[in-house]
Design a protein around this nucleic acid. Structure first.
Lengths: 142, 142
DNA sequence: TTAGATGCAAATAGTTTGCATTTGT
DNA sequence: ACAAATGCAAACTATTTGCATCTAA
């Protein structure tokens, strides 16, 4: 399995994990889908690319990626089925309409001051963050 | 079912929902547990208080509370079983150690400027937010 | 070569649904 | 009185596990 490794794949290698077809396919699905994706969608898209990759391996990969902070589970709909977010630069922000579940992504946030303050206060090394605002969108507010 | 209604219970009534034993018990469990609690824990604690409350009603209540923005599902452990957060004043913040899943709550955040800016930009009315930092805690960093 | 990863299928666990009955208003 | 909510049990969906086999390093 020799090919150009993305930064994320490299993170995996650096942590001592092997580059396998299942893992690369899941990563590809995430990178091609951009934003949010549920485990169900991951299963479907991976199956569409390679029918032979087992569900179990996909779940194991989701676990691994979460531990490596490549993705982060979050919650859009009420219950069951987490939704995963790719962590592009270790952070992510969005607004969710609590009525229609529409997701609006935004980029500008300025949390570095707060982050540093927290690092000092709790002696923790922060690697990323997820900021979720919720409210009622224009369409639903009518 | 006549008793002092908490602010949250009142929100439920105002929205036209009935005050029932199942709902009050779930609310009590949330309020007594303070921070984060998984659906599994809610099921257990409710059963401990009143054996006769059905699981289905508890899930229906979790749904309702989420719609009313009384609670918000989030994700601590990798997959399965969402964890719910009571939304005390419509916002919540914590730091999660991605290694041991320890949760550190903190209160000071200053997102009101950002919130106003987003409201203006997207014509959305924001009701709350969840800010999640993740990193490696002191203990795990050793 | 070999520890780590996989795919399969079976086992678990978590959530939802239909419906007759009960309950808050 | 009556619509809303409940409890039960069954159906369903999602996730995990054990294990023999395979494969990246």
């Amino acid at each position: 399995m020799t090919e150009q490794l993305s930064k994320r794949a490299r993170r995996m290698v650096d942590a001592g994990y092997k580059v396998t077809k299942a893992r690369m396919t899941v990563l590809r699905v995430f990178e091609e889908s951009g934003g949010h994706i549920t485990s169900k969608e991951v299963l479907e898209r991976v199956a569409a690319i390679d029918e032979n990759i087992g569900r179990a391996s996909i779940f194991r990969t989701l676990d691994l990626f979460t531990r490596l902070a490549i993705i982060r589970p979050t919650y859009i709909e009420t219950s069951m089925t987490p939704s995963y977010v790719l962590l592009p630069d270790g952070h992510h922000h969005h607004i969710i309409c609590t009525n229609c579940d529409q997701v609006i992504e935004f980029d500008n946030c300025d949390l570095s001051d707060l982050a540093h303050q927290l690092e000092a206060e709790y002696g923790i090394e922060l690697t990323g963050h997820l900021l979720e605002f919720y409210g009622i969108c224009k369409t639903c507010a009518v």
